[in-house]
Design a binder for these strands. Structure first.
Lengths: 154, 154
DNA sequence: TTTTTTATGATATGTTATATCTTCTCTTTC
DNA sequence: GAAAGAGAAGATATAACATATCATAAAAAA
């Protein structure tokens, strides 16, 4: 895994606290369900699918939820910038820096499936430029790079 | 549409001829079905979904084909670099430059849905660099930029 | 407290994709 | 040319991902 042994509970806790704080400031509702889903998304640093989240929810003792339950929660979390969607994997991952909303750009390790978010100003500049060269504007950009993470290269 | 009035039959014909040539050189089989699917993909400069292709195939007088038929043809065409997959749209588009295999990077117009392929060396360099900065290698990269094309900006 | 709004539950269905087994059609070999 | 083998396509079933819609509940506003 990308992040060597670390206290992952702290990751989850930090994400939840940040989310609560952000939603409070924005006066959006960080309900118990949304909180729970965010925790589940943060269960690992690997992306997770909607139906995996659904299974996890069931194992929390709740009655089996239906797909819209999870998709609605994910929609909210994505809208608030707390979670990103990985288009090439149909999967979701927590945003490590939700304070300012942004489009996520990702590095995906092909062997351990760990995903790392990139925040590269020059990359964003180049994406905008590449679009402009063809006369397009750049409103949002999906970038998903597949390769090997540091660990898996050894 | 991105490309103003043009003889689109020429686009299709050129794509098919290039494909036939490439497959012949590589000794891979450009069968009638694969050829037909490539033509259908090239019916427009907008991306097309697998099930749309399936519908189009049916309207060609053939007996209704099953999904694996189209997915297998698409897998072949993608493998040969004749078609690209747009991850964010679950759709497919013909490659305008199939002579050398490459990962496509795309500009997607949010209003007319026209897609233009980008080939920007500096962008590729920056993607590689962004990955390396985090210790990742860059094997393939998916880039899909959504904005407005020249026409739709007016 | 009543009204209104927003979130969640429940049911059904739509959309995208693959696994698997069979049949057909070439190509190779004898 | 016939038999064997390989690869492509057909057929069936089902898996995986996602949304529409209506009902109910909970929270906020009036």
């Amino acid at each position: 895994m990308q992040l060597r042994s670390h206290d992952h509970n702290k990751c989850i806790e930090a994400a939840v606290n940040a989310a609560r704080d952000i939603c409070h400031r924005r006066e959006t509702r960080f309900t118990p369900l949304r909180c729970k889903v965010l925790e589940l998304v943060w269960n690992s640093h690997a992306p997770v699918s909607a139906y995996e989240l659904l299974d996890m929810l069931s194992q929390e003792g709740r009655k089996r939820a239906a797909p819209p339950t999870i998709y609605r929660a994910l929609d909210f979390l994505i809208e608030e910038g707390l979670v990103h969607r990985l288009e090439s994997l149909n999967a979701f991952i927590g945003c490590p820096d939700p304070a300012h909303k942004h489009q996520g750009h990702f590095l995906i390790c092909r062997t351990c499936r760990t995903v790392t978010e990139v925040n590269d100003k020059k990359l964003i500049a180049r994406l905008t430029k590449a679009a402009r060269l063809q006369g397009y504007s750049c409103e949002t950009s999906m970038v998903e790079i597949v390769g090997l993470c540091v660990e898996c290269q050894n």
